[in-house]
Design a protein around this nucleic acid. Structure first.
Length: 109
DNA sequence: TTTCTGACTCGAA
DNA sequence: CTTCGAGCCAGAA
């Protein structure tokens, strides 16, 4: 795997998130080896607009839709997630541990 | 080079 | 419940 920029690594992982599943910024950050630079992942997602990156499948460690405000409408992120079979109530993903997808388990296997 | 910022995370009060 | 501080790091100006 050719390492280019931090962003491409983030996008690459995000694109591999299965439909109906989500992961956290921190999980991606740890997988990339950047450790606690979860902020960078979120920042990368900010630029993910216009790319094939399902940013709506990336939430914070609590399963909260912290970045929903960047999807345009306040409820677009939730709509997308529910469309994939994920229940979201008040920005909180239900059954979070059941829909959580850890890149370490799939890509780092 | 320095400074600032951020869709984070954890712990503490 | 809320608020705060500190750690963390890539990129832009």
């Amino acid at each position: 795997m050719v390492k280019t920029s931090f962003y491409e690594d983030v996008y690459d992982v995000a694109r591999q998130i299965p439909q109906g599943h989500v992961t956290s910024y921190g999980a991606i950050a740890r997988f990339l080896g950047t450790g606690g630079s979860a902020r960078m992942v979120g920042w990368a997602m900010n630029q993910a607009h216009g790319k094939d990156v399902p940013a709506h499948r990336v939430v914070n460690s609590k399963g909260l839709l912290t970045g929903k405000h960047h999807f345009g409408n306040n409820n677009q992120m939730q709509q997308l997630l529910e469309k994939e079979g994920i229940s979201v109530i008040k920005d909180q993903i239900q059954n979070f541990n059941q829909v959580f997808w850890d890149p370490m388990l799939e890509l780092g296997l």
